[in-house]
């Protein structure tokens, strides 16, 4: 890891939202470093701040109601949060691109997919044969019968096909970072497998860095080399994927792993985490996980834990060594 080249550095990122009902600290002190060509996964449940973190990487959070309350996002050393409009536009097209959960929402329903892809290419790349490039991209993402498919409107394609088109659009500019936010959650199991295989292949072939955002721990084990676990706007644990999954340290990660029913499990009762994900408007004092934590003690209720590093692993828990 020490030898790999740093591409993206997030430092103490804070993204807050002013809402009628109060201030939501959606992301509150997130930091990580994504090396060139690496695949990382950001894992957590709904409302933990993983998608807001992803959007912040290209300063895509709606302002207002959102605002950047602190921290830096450095892409090759330049702070994205301080860029001007023009610079941001170049960044969004050329260096970071996104694939979201619902391809049907991201594609424009009134334009043929070939046209939408061509637009993406024209916007970001000069001196290429646009038509050839559209076909090449569609072939690269494994869209069968690309010649005729490029003349179709989005609704004529299945969810899996639409997601392939979205991936093609995201790759049109040959980004350095691909952010995939729950890219397979809306798809059927057999189609999920196709898309995941496609992402893994493209990552290898194009050498881009991938940040995979997901709630599915099963998914990340085979894909990501490093895992970042988020809870209530913070990264509570991070480390090399298999190492972390085999020996989770944070009580939340432990609970989450124990709560996933296993394909091969027989008989025994799986236990969930008590309570539910906290309301972002009313986060508890101290460690944000303490009301649900079976190991919570007095200090957990009063003092928020800080990052504690141990080799390549980091955890935010007062008591991880004892439990």
């Amino acid at each position: 890891m020490a030898l790999s080249e740093e591409l993206l550095r997030v430092e103490d990122l804070r993204v807050y939202f002013s809402t009628e009902r109060g201030l939501v600290r959606a992301v509150d002190g997130v930091g990580f470093v994504l090396p060139k060509g690496a695949t990382y996964a950001l894992v957590g449940e709904s409302g933990c701040g993983k998608s807001v973190t992803a959007l912040a990487l290209a300063r895509l959070v709606d302002e207002p109601p959102g605002y950047y309350a602190g921290g830096r996002v450095l892409l090759r050393g330049r702070n994205v949060l301080e860029m001007e409009e023009g610079e941001l536009r170049r960044l969004r097209g050329n260096e970071i691109s996104y694939v979201f959960q619902e391809p049907a929402v991201s594609l424009n329903p009134v334009f043929r997919i070939g046209y939408q892809l061509a637009e993406a290419i024209r916007l970001h790349r000069r001196g290429v044969n646009v038509r050839e490039e559209v076909l090449a991209l569609l072939k690269m993402v494994g869209l069968p019968d690309a010649e005729s498919k490029m003349k179709e409107y989005p609704h004529r394609l299945s969810g899996g096909m639409q997601q392939r088109v979205m991936i093609a659009m995201a790759l049109a500019c040959r980004p350095a970072v691909l952010v995939a936010d729950e890219p397979t959650t809306a798809l059927d199991v057999t189609i999920q497998a196709q898309i995941l295989e496609l992402l893994a292949r493209l990552q290898r072939e194009l050498g881009m860095a991938v940040l995979l955002i997901t709630h599915n721990l099963g998914l990340v084990a085979d894909l990501a080399e490093r895992l970042l676990v988020m809870y209530a706007g913070r990264i509570v644990e991070a480390g090399p994927t298999l190492d972390l999954l085999r020996g989770p340290r944070h009580p939340y990660t432990r609970g989450l792993l124990a709560a996933v029913p296993r394909l091969r499990s027989v008989g025994g009762e799986v236990r969930g985490i008590r309570g539910s994900v906290p309301n972002p408007l009313r986060l508890p004092e101290g460690c944000k996980f303490h009301p649900r934590c079976p190991f919570a003690s007095d200090i957990c209720r009063r003092v928020e834990p800080e990052d504690e590093w141990d080799g390549e692993r980091v955890v935010r828990c007062h008591r991880w060594r004892e439990i």
Binding site: T190, N216, L217, G218, A221, D222, L263, R264
Partner: peptide, 15 residues
């Protein structure tokens, strides 16, 4: 196919 398409955490953990 359906069974093999499901991400299998145990299999991954056991390498």
């Amino acid at each position: 196919a359906l069974l093999s398409a499901v991400p299998d955490l145990d299999a991954s953990l056991e390498g």
